[in-house]
């Protein structure tokens, strides 16, 4: 069985003021995630990405369908905290998810809630802070840190609970380019070195390219999924749903329209340069 299995879920935020039935935020959505995988969930605002993220750690329960995490049904209330321990969720705004006035005390918040022994918490906190390269800031006040640093502290706060999977809901949306690359390299390191399962929700194509598998969502459903190469070669489909492709792919697509032949679509600037060199030779 897969580590996370989302089986045909539908969900709507019910609004009691409205007489007419509200539109589903997610409908007939299925997804399965293997251990150690790096999956990106892509789509524009309001397509249901965040709703899916909150289903993965039992913050929301589906109206119909089931979500299983490591074999446990998320609707089983006895398992809620086990599931949240296994699947950590990092939110968009780093400022709003830090609870303590000192970095290391914030990172300790999760393990403290789990009732872990003080010595063990200390060890986990130090380890988590070292993993995200924030160890030297352990006694700083969070409000004095940059956005990227704050978001890395938030990630450390989840890591200290030693989850098996980390879900990030647009963690880079409020960050500057520097902060964004700091967070992305932390995630890649986690996935490659610690074999952590990562689910990244984003609307930056450049970030999705770095993952093993891209799932594109539109209007609460899966539009297409596959490796970044497979997904981003379907330029017409993505354009039809008002989604972008990475700039390099876009350039290649336009050049192809002018009659220049590419064997496959480039995803990053470096790849694109190499391919153009080949073509122009």
């Amino acid at each position: 069985m897969e580590f996370i299995c989302v089986d045909n879920i539908s969900f709507s935020y019910d609004d009691r003021d409205l007489e007419k039935p509200t539109k589903n935020a997610v409908s007939d959505f299925s997804l399965s995630i293997k251990k150690g995988e790096f999956v990106s969930l892509l789509g524009h605002n309001g397509c249901g990405k965040s709703t899916v993220a909150k289903h993965l750690n039992a913050m929301l329960l589906p109206d119909s369908g089931k979500v299983y995490v490591d074999g446990d049904d998320t609707s089983d209330e006895d398992k809620t905290y086990d599931i949240r321990k296994k699947v950590g969720l990092v939110l968009q705004n780093p400022d709003n998810q830090l609870v303590a006035s000192i970095v290391e005390e914030d990172v300790a918040f999760g393990p403290e809630n789990l009732g872990i022994e003080p010595d063990e918490i200390r060890k986990r906190v130090d380890e988590a802070l070292k993993t995200v390269d924030m160890y030297e800031y352990r006694d700083h006040a969070p409000y004095k840190l940059s956005g990227g640093q704050k978001q890395r502290v938030a990630i450390a706060g989840i890591l200290a609970m030693q989850p098996e999977c980390i879900v990030l809901d647009e963690p880079t949306a409020m960050l500057d380019p520097n902060g964004r690359s700091e967070v992305m390299s932390t995630l890649i390191k986690l996935n490659k070195e610690k074999n952590m399962t990562v689910v990244l929700i984003t609307h930056y194509m450049e970030e999705a390219v770095l993952s093993d598998r891209v799932v594109v969502m539109d209007d609460g459903r899966v539009l297409t999924q596959g490796t970044p190469e497979e997904v981003f070669s379907q330029v017409e489909l993505l354009k039809k749903h008002r989604l972008d492709v990475p700039q390099a792919t876009e350039l290649a697509y336009k050049l192809r329209g002018c009659g220049i032949k590419f064997e496959k679509m480039p995803l990053t600037a470096d790849e694109c340069v190499a391919m153009l060199e080949e073509v122009l030779r």
């Binding site: 905290y81 949240r84 969720l89 609870v99 393990p111 809630n113 706060g157 989840i158």
Partner: peptide
């Protein structure tokens, strides 16, 4: 912010003072 914070705290398994330890 309060709403976000509550979500983040729940994600980190906060369930009141019961069974909580301190670093």
């Amino acid at each position: 912010r309060a709403y976000d914070l509550a979500t983040a705290m729940e994600c980190r398994c906060y369930r009141g003072g019961f069974g909580r330890t301190r670093m």
